Amino acid sequence: MRWRLDRQVDWTPWRGNVMAWKKILIAGGSGLVGSKAALHFGAQDGCDVLVASRRPPPVAGVRHLRLDLTDRVACAKALTGHGDITHIVYAAVYEQAGLVAGWSDAKQIDVNDAMFRNLLDPLAGSVALRHVTLFQGTKAYGVHIRPFANPAREGRSEYREQPNFYWRQEDHLRETQVGKPWSWTILRPVHVFGDTIGVSLNAILGVGLYAAIMKHRGEPLHYPGGPPRLSEAVDADLLARCVAWAGEAETARNQVFNVANGDVFTWENVWPSLARVFGMELGEHRPLSLGQEMSRESAAWDEVRARHDLLSPSLEAFAGKSLQFADYTLRYGMGPQPPQLVSTVKLRQAGFHEVMDTEAMFAKWFGRLQADRLLPPALADAG
């Protein structure tokens, strides 16, 4: 690290694998994506990590800036003293109570647009700022609206005809960056999986809660979803490392990338391995809305927690809106649909080559939830 006598940082990156000092602001650091980014950067030498969120992040060793991103005046005031921020990772998102229905709602679009502006605008003119990372997803290709041609590719398969807060945020990012020295990267991960609890878009929580309650009742692990559909996933830790790469790589500057584990899966094909992780017999195909049925099982979940002396909170605090999202990704109540896959060739060619076996990813995250006493252990007795 090189310091000037006036204590201003020399922002020129060091060569090789050692990077310059960074002050990273992560918006939405209590969520699935943001918390894993905070965990990754917090473990790196030379990183000062500041998490902006209403809830404290579930990560030790980072600083918390309690901030309501919908309050423009509060954001401007809170960020005034942080002109030395070098990287912004924007992982915040506002979701409505109706989750999937809210994805096309005008209010959801307006709120997410305003939140991003409220965070970016006070920092956009800083001479210290080097990079902004923004997240989208496969809704950029209209996955929630229509089948699309496989595989979806950046720059040619976007569905801008469909209202989406992605476009408002992206347009503002591009316009704000004109004439400034910092760069940006937009990452479009497919379904993200991890062990962060209480969030909206982590299907692992809904599946894990369902398995725990079925096992508690002595049932096998029935498959509750709809017809098979070939899908992709991305491990939250892998995504965090991709964020770190994007913030420094020359080839990532002002680019959009799809991000995925590198393989494909169907829920039906990984279901037997999940039954083994939970220590359960494999059941039948019994379609069931987890969002409707499991949300009524607060008492059963409390019994599971008490029986196994779990550290997990109440059902609502544990699952968030993930039961609704599990219905969506498991395709409950939906008819047959073609695969909807994305190409990650552009990301590989740019230099990020990490991959992960998706079946191993599921075992990893469910295993961590069990090890942290948030789900019952695999060998626990049913009943």
Rank of each mutant, 00 (worst) to 15 (best):
L120P: 06
D121H: 14
D121I: 10
D121E: 15
P122Q: 02
L123W: 01
L123T: 06
L123V: 00
G125M: 05
G125W: 06
S126L: 09
A128Y: 10
A128D: 09
L129Q: 11
L129F: 07
R130H: 10
R130S: 12
H131R: 05
V132P: 09
V132N: 04
V132G: 01
V132F: 09
T133I: 15
T133E: 15
L134T: 07
F135Q: 00
Q136W: 13
Q136F: 15
G137I: 05
K139R: 10
Y141T: 02
Y141C: 00
Y141S: 00
G142N: 09
G142P: 06
V143L: 09
V143S: 15
V143Y: 15
V143F: 15
H144S: 09
H144K: 08
I145V: 15
P147C: 12
P147H: 11
F148L: 02
F148S: 03
F148W: 12
A149N: 12
A149H: 14
A149W: 07
P151V: 07
A152Q: 02
A152W: 07
E154N: 03
E154I: 00
R156I: 06
S157M: 02
S157E: 10
S157R: 11
S157N: 02
E158L: 01
E158N: 03
Y159L: 02
Y159M: 04
Y159S: 08
Y159P: 03
R160S: 02
R160E: 11
E161G: 13
Q162S: 07
P163H: 15
N164H: 14
F165Q: 01
F165S: 05
Y166V: 02
Y166F: 15
Y166N: 01
W167E: 04
W167G: 00
R168I: 00
Q169P: 02
E170K: 15
E170D: 14
D171S: 14
H172R: 11
H172Q: 03
H172A: 03
H172M: 03
L173K: 08
L173V: 14
R174Y: 10
R174M: 13
R174L: 13
R174S: 12
E175P: 09
T176C: 03
T176H: 01
T176S: 03
T176G: 00
V178D: 12
G179M: 01
P181V: 01
P181A: 06
P181R: 01
W182A: 00
W182I: 01
S183W: 07
W184S: 03
I186K: 12
I186Q: 07
L187M: 03
L187A: 05
R188T: 03
R188Q: 10
P189Q: 03
V190A: 09
V190C: 13
V190M: 11
V190K: 12
H191K: 08
V192S: 00
G194W: 09
D195C: 13
D195I: 04
T196F: 12
I197K: 10
G198F: 13
G198R: 12
G198I: 05
V199C: 01
S200I: 12
L201D: 11
L201P: 12
N202V: 10
A203V: 11
I204D: 08
I204Q: 13
I204F: 13
G206S: 09
V207R: 11
V207A: 14
V207S: 10
V207T: 13
G208Y: 09
G208C: 05
L209R: 11
Y210H: 08
A211H: 13
A211N: 06
A212R: 13
I213Y: 06
I213V: 14
I213A: 07
I213W: 06
K215R: 09
H216I: 05
P220R: 12
P220C: 05
P220E: 04
P220Q: 06
